[in-house]
Design a protein around this nucleic acid. Sequence first.
DNA 1: CAGCATCCCGATTGATACTG
DNA 2: CAGTATCAATCGGGATGCTG
Lengths: 234, 234
Amino acid sequence: MKAAPEHRTKRSYHDACGTARALDLVGERWTLLVVRELLLGPKRFTDLRAGLPAISPNVLSQRLDELAQAGVVRKRKLPPPVSTAVYDLTEWGRELDTVVLALSRWGARARNAYRCSDMSTDALVVSLRTFFDAEAAESVSAEYDLYLTGSDAGTDEFHAVVADGTLTVTRGAGSAPTAIHASVPAFVAVVFDKHSLREAVTTGTMEINGDLTAAEQFTEFFRIPPECSANRAD
Amino acid sequence: MKAAPEHRTKRSYHDACGTARALDLVGERWTLLVVRELLLGPKRFTDLRAGLPAISPNVLSQRLDELAQAGVVRKRKLPPPVSTAVYDLTEWGRELDTVVLALSRWGARARNAYRCSDMSTDALVVSLRTFFDAEAAESVSAEYDLYLTGSDAGTDEFHAVVADGTLTVTRGAGSAPTAIHASVPAFVAVVFDKHSLREAVTTGTMEINGDLTAAEQFTEFFRIPPECSANRAD
DNA sequence: CAGCATCCCGATTGATACTG
DNA sequence: CAGTATCAATCGGGATGCTG
């Protein structure tokens, strides 16, 4: 009969600096990756686990509780037809977008970049937004439907809008004139590693419905930063 | 005679997403705060401890090793006159500036903001840069020397340059026409909580050498964001 | 004294099993 | 599906001690 610890003393940096207070809330292990998974809209517990293949359910559970407690995430129960619980970012939580993108931009230049390995579909979308080059897309207005097959063989649909030098991606395919179907690695190869899209289409790793030229233009919007800059220092 | 574990398997998210890779490198506890302390220039081990009052020396040591290993920080030995080791951000490490500022900006809107408690002088400078309002400083060109007394009674000197809607702060006072002397809490009260500067001067909590009007203008450059937006959700 | 290395203990994490 | 329970492994934090 041990009294439940109850942890009413959450660990904190006790530093008035905004950075430290932010880290008090989202600095624990996995927390920002959970936020990343929620940036494009609400998800169920299982969806989160699918995007974060290595997280333990108890840790995910704890992180979601903490985020809800902090007002970053809200847990909602969908009405009866589905009747499942989903987790959604609050408006304030969604502002972590800038933090996640800044980290992504920085982390992309690390050495030992292993761009080819597994990435969730949501992570891929974050990468798209990370490497979107406003200048390359200047004066372009276009829409695309993306059908991305993840490592779990499930396909996620996204709608990408390019306008005013801005890329906006939302979950769910719309009625875009150009649809791109691909697995995550195939998409990465074409968009980031600049492999030939036509070749990917002929080999069948990618499928384009609609305007092939528009799809090729889409791949031009993304630029990987100037390689890692840091050399071994030790 | 136990074989030293040697940890050659550093914990990783094993996720190709840039965010995850960034967090592999700077996502451990304390790591980003160590970076924050180094943003304004190199520091010794003890200086870091002073700015991070709650970190254990062994953890700081470990974090510095990891950061050096990752190419974020470089350890240098100053030439004989001083002959101490200092830690400095690499060029790539300094790019974490955007990440720290994004976190700071987000964290400043948390509820339970306790802006009045202890903050290191470096953290205060990060806050200044966080809340600097480009529009408020538009078409202003000015320089200031800041003499900030921290909680350890030591005084740190900074040089702030406002130009082109930009605030640049470097360590070390220059020859600015306006010098502001204050403790960290006094400075916070005037700049962020908008207490009267003249009053602070007359009560002696602050001292201005040079142009008092310029100093008052300086305090106008900083705007705290629209309060915390999240309400209790539980 | 600066800059760690060591030891110890409690807190956190991770893998797996289990339940409503 | 959506988590909770359990337990082992690891990590963080404080005290102390070593080394130049």
